[in-house]
Structure formats: structure tokens, C-alpha cells
Nucleic acid binder design. Sequence first.
RNA 1: UCCCCCUUAGCUCAGUUGGUUAGAGCGGCUGACUGUUAAUCAGUAGGUCCUUGGUUCGAGCCCAAGAGGGGGAGCCA
Length: 480
Amino acid sequence: MEDLKRIKIKELMDAPVVGKKVNVKGWVRTFRSNRFIAINDGSTINNMQAVVDFEAMDEQLLKRVTTGACVSVTGELKESLGKGQTVEVIVESLEILGDADPEKYPLQPKKHSLEFLREIAHLRVRTNTFSAIYRVRHAMIFAVHNFFNQKGFYNVHTPIITGSDAEGAGEMFRVTTLDLTNPPKNEDGTINNKEDFFGKETNLTVSGQLEGETAAMGMSEIYTFGPTFRAENSNTSRHLAEFWMIEPEMAFYDINDNMDLAEEFVKYLVKYALENCKDDLEFLNQRALDEEKGKPQNERSSMSLLERLQFVADNEFERVTYTEAIDILKNSKPNKKKKFQYLIEEWGADLQSEHERFLVEKHFEKPVILYNYPKDIKAFYMRQNNDDKTVAAMDVLFPGIGEIIGGSQREERYDVLKARVDELGIPEKDLWWYLDLRKFGSAPHSGFGLGFERLILFVTGMGNIRDVIPFPRTPDNAEF
RNA sequence: UCCCCCUUAGCUCAGUUGGUUAGAGCGGCUGACUGUUAAUCAGUAGGUCCUUGGUUCGAGCCCAAGAGGGGGAGCCA
């Protein structure tokens, strides 16, 4: 084979130079008519068609061109005679880089269930659906940094191993180097954590917020984007034990500034996807439509994926206080007809997902930001409002997904925060540095957390969060 | 953690009231054809009916326990 530099399929398709000799490497999707090899290299959802003259080629070599095999083809780029593509490579030389035994290779040129593909997560990236999802995921990662960079926010790496167990966002994964079969003990029989690597009990982070706040109290506007770990025994299509979270934290922002930023942020991401992931979103749009064909009419969504994304980009989110939401729910049909599993009786009740869904999907039919929640159902660090009953918390709720963002204005008044910490019995030794922020140059500030995979669920139209991260970690599953 | 559903060929699924040799489509293989688009046509192979135990003359089908998967709830992002 001639020594020709490999070119990506995306490059060839974006700017095809007909008549040029090119080398393409990738994985065989199908080999039709003993003549047409559909090659995909992951640079785009589109395949490059390579045309071989089977009468002039080694039959044994062509036999090895099977679904899943990795090949390198070299030849002239020509306008395609067929209809499905504009250009194709007329193969002069063909090399098999890696065989794939068709009797054993699990992917076939046919539709596979998502459940089956989850079991072969190391190979599912070779399907249109998953490569499309991962390309969109990449675009969203890029867009997150782009958005904040343009706005003058600084990215901060908060620790993944944390020594404070006061974050209160959920069950934590223990990090230890102690010998679990024979751990060092104190005289009273408890484990002696002083012997552990850090000389104390440590865990994987459940949120970078508290550390993020320290950064905001010196750099004004920061954001984190990192892995987050929750050892909750959650078995749903919206929860992962290991996920990625974006947490901006802004000095001098009140709850309204916070909601403005959250809305602007999500809209930016959705618009970015619409503008930069056209091919992939069109494929995912069609995939979702095909999937819905199998569903009864009343379970189908009123808008297609692309329409939904455009709708979110174009329309104001509805902003409703908790108190207003309770009124709406109390007087709603399902509440009066006792259709809710949990009926709304009075102010103070925690909203269940059936209530959130009603507000978002039935009542307003658009994304909703709920804010000013009762303080008793929210975290200790949220700023108490003047009514003495509510805190300046806000949740952004999305159709089909529920809470995509949770945030608040933070309590910046030392006395108020200290009283709340004491009231809840949170040990001050874990939070002394957090309280210090309120002692020295405190400032009103706000922030929120966006669950990255939940955003990807929305943007790709997928239904299960295990399909929008390459290797999902969930209870009882850490395969791969 | 709780509730519900599922597990039959490589994949997606059918399998009647408990009855003789468990089926289809797709995929694989063999051959034909050759400008195809998940190519087409013909033929063909392929089964621990999730596991264990039980009921029965007889279990893919009934019962119990377990494993795996899915949907929903809670928790949350």
C-alpha cells in the first residue's frame, strides 16, 4: 500500500475533492452486493461508501470484509453513481486492519435493543445511536466551557476526595487504604481512622459546591465541572452513582440573577446543539420518532425532539413560587379527583414527581422554575427569606426528566447560617471553613448544579440515563 | 429500599387448556445475482426454554426460592 496520510470521513464529506486519491480507515458497517463497503470512523454519523471491483480483487480478502471489521482503503474519491451519498472511494487497495468473526461479533446490520447494547457497552459506540450520543455529549462539554468562558467565569477543580461529610447531598462512597479484613481499631472497638491514608475518614465528593463557594468569594464568578458520586440505592432511569455535574457559583448574584443565568445557560446549550450537531440530532430525532410509533397515541409526545429543542430555545421558562405552585396543584383536576397518589392538602408538603410532571407537562407545557421553597424541605445553606418560612431555592424542571437544575441563593449572614447549622446538629468541626466565609468579607451569592447526563437525556431524546454516559455506574453494576 | 412486569436460537419475539419432534423474522453460513443503501432471491445450520427445587403419568407453560433485566416510587442532579 502506498504511504498516504489517512483522512477522516468527516473531512472528506465536508470538503470533498473529487479526483483526489485518499486513504480512509474505519469499521465496516455493511458490505453490500459484494461491491459496496459502508465504512464509519466515528468522525461523523455518515458512512463513506467504498466501492470494490470484486472481479479484480482477491476473493479471500473480500471474505474478511465483514460487519465490525476494521479496514483501510485507498483509492480515488469520485462522485457517487448511487443515490445515498454524494461521493465514494473507488478502491485501489484494501487492507484488513482487524478481523471480526461474523459468527461471534454481536452487532449486526439491524436494530438492536438498548438493553442488549448496554450489556456490550464496549462495542455500542460502534452504533449510529451511541456514536451520535457521544458526539453530542462532547459538543455539550465544549459548549459548557465556552459559555462560562465567554461570560468571564473561571473553571475551578474542586476535590474529588473530600474530608467533610457535611455536604448533605446524599450517601457517600468511602475512600480508604485500610485493610478491610483487619482494620485498626480503637479501644472501644470502633475503626481507628487516624491510621487511614488521610488520618481521617474520607469519601468521594457528592458536590463541589461548598469548595466552589470559597472560590467565588475571591474570584467572583466560577464554575466546576467534574465527576460526582452518590451511593444512593437509586434504581431509576434518571440516576447514576457516578455522574458529571456543573456547578457555577457567583458572588453578588441574588436568586433572580441565579434563575436568569440558569435559563440563559440551558438555552445556550440547546442552541449550541441545534447549530453544531445537526446530523446527529436529525438521526436521533428520527430514532425517537420510530420508537414512538410503537407506543399508544396518548403516550406519544406532542413535539418531536427537534421541535422540543427549538421550543426550549425560543420560549421563556415559567417562573413560579412554591406557594403559587401549591395553589395551582390544590385546585388542579387530578388533585380534586384524587388522581394524585399524594394529594396536596396544605402548604409545606414536598412536591412529588407526579406534581412536578403535572406542572411542567400538563399545566404550563414548558420548562418551569420553581423557587422560594419551605425551608424545612431544603438544605441548610440556602438563604432564608424575610417571611421566615421559605428559602431562596430554585429548581428548573424539564419535561420527561424532572429536576435538571437545583440551586439557591446561599445564606451569607453568619448568625443566620450558624443558627441553622446548630439547629440541624451539623458538627461545626466539618464546616468551620465554610462558616469562615461568612466571617470574613461575606457577600450575597448564589449558585446551582446542573446534572450533565440529565441535560444529555433532554438534548438527545434518550429515555434512560445509562445510555448517555459511556460506562454507567449504578447499584450492582460496575461492569467495564 | 419498596411496588409491578419480563427472561424461549446470536438479536427481536410467538408458543393454545400442562401433552408427542419448541417456531417465525432478522443475523450467520452455502449458493445465485451484481450500482447497492439494514441489497435481493434460494437453501441451510443453530436451543441448558435464566438457575435450583417442587407438583404431575407428563412442565417452556403450574408452585417456591434465587439470579439477571426493565418500568414506576422514594432520594436527588
